[in-house]
Design a protein around this nucleic acid. Structure first.
Length: 284
DNA sequence: GCGACAG
DNA sequence: ATCTTGTCGC
């Protein structure tokens, strides 16, 4: 029974209706030397990765967005779905769509076992190895469908240290990547869901409308909030990961959206869940 | 000290 | 991320 190694967790039964103490773990800095250690180490890795990020459009990105028609390009979407009461077993998916016609040309689902914890700001360290594997699979076995750009569930430079998982993946693969988040990632003293933000969201009228996400104190432009389809009330937050500009990333996401979440990511999400439902009863 | 925290 | 029923609208 591989229970959590390290400090034993004194999670007493806080199941009762009344637990007297209302000091809900608040900021959770529930001292965990092991996690702090990991954080420090990961922060250094992010610092190195950040130096390699490019926010310029890769030539293929330029071509795929400007081309009147002729060539067909491929856009990949990645996502990982989890098993309910299980934070280890999951299904990683890559679905590749042709662009601009948006037809599925390739899909890969892999049962995986997560080993790293999820820590806000360090999502990539938990999922990246599996995404890299998915990319290598296509490139090696179905080269013709290797995506020229990859969409990741999460953020690119819209991140506390400017290195979201889309940057992480992009730099490691040296492939254009962008992030699409369904929720705005809070960045201390710079970006948050305040009144002004809510007003800006209310000002988005039609599909394709956007507003830039600019840091209130840093002045940094992290990406854009995009009303991806007519029906969506809530925007998606697009930010470049690597080898793609903010405007191109936003345009690409918009052009791949039939619903709020762009098709590549949406299908990777829906299909990986379905995969778990069918292939994971308790074992296989 | 509290709050806020992609998936 | 995951859970869960109904409900509103095209």
């Amino acid at each position: 029974a591989a229970s959590a190694s390290g400090p034993n967790r004194q999670c007493t039964e806080t199941f009762g209706e009344d637990d007297g103490d209302r000091n809900l773990s608040g900021s959770e800095q529930t001292l965990d030397p092991a996690l702090l250690e990991i954080k420090r180490k990961w922060e250094l890795e992010q610092k190195e990765l950040k130096k390699k990020i490019s926010l310029e459009d890769d030539r293929n990105v330029e071509k795929m967005l400007s081309n009147p028609d002729s060539d067909t390009f491929y856009v990949g979407g990645m996502d990982i779905s989890f098993v309910k009461g299980d934070d280890v077993n999951a299904c990683a998916a890559l679905v590749v769509f042709s662009f601009p016609d948006l037809e599925v040309v390739y899909e890969d689902y892999q049962m995986i076992q997560l080993t790293q914890p999820y820590i806000p700001g360090f999502l990539a360290f938990r999922e990246m190895d599996f995404m890299i594997q998915l990319y290598n699979n296509v490139k090696e076995n179905n080269t013709q469908y290797t995506p020229q750009v990859i969409m990741v569930d999460g953020n690119g430079i819209l991140h506390p240290r400017g290195v979201g998982s889309a940057c992480h993946l992009g730099v490691l693969l040296d492939v254009p990547c962008l992030g699409v988040a369904k929720n705005l990632f809070f960045i201390e003293n710079d970006i948050d869901r305040n009144e002004e933000h809510m007003e800006q969201i209310a000002s988005l009228k039609q599909s394709g409308d956007t507003f830039p996400l600019v840091g209130s104190s840093s002045g940094i432009t992290y990406g854009k909030a995009l009303k991806s389809c007519e029906k969506a009330t809530k925007p998606v937050y697009v930010s470049p990961g690597h080898k793609i500009s903010i405007d191109s990333a936003t345009e690409l996401v918009h052009r791949c959206s039939k619903y709020r979440v762009p098709e590549p990511i949406r299908q990777a999400d829906l299909n990986s869940r379905e995969y778990l439902r069918v292939n994971f009863k308790d074992g296989s």
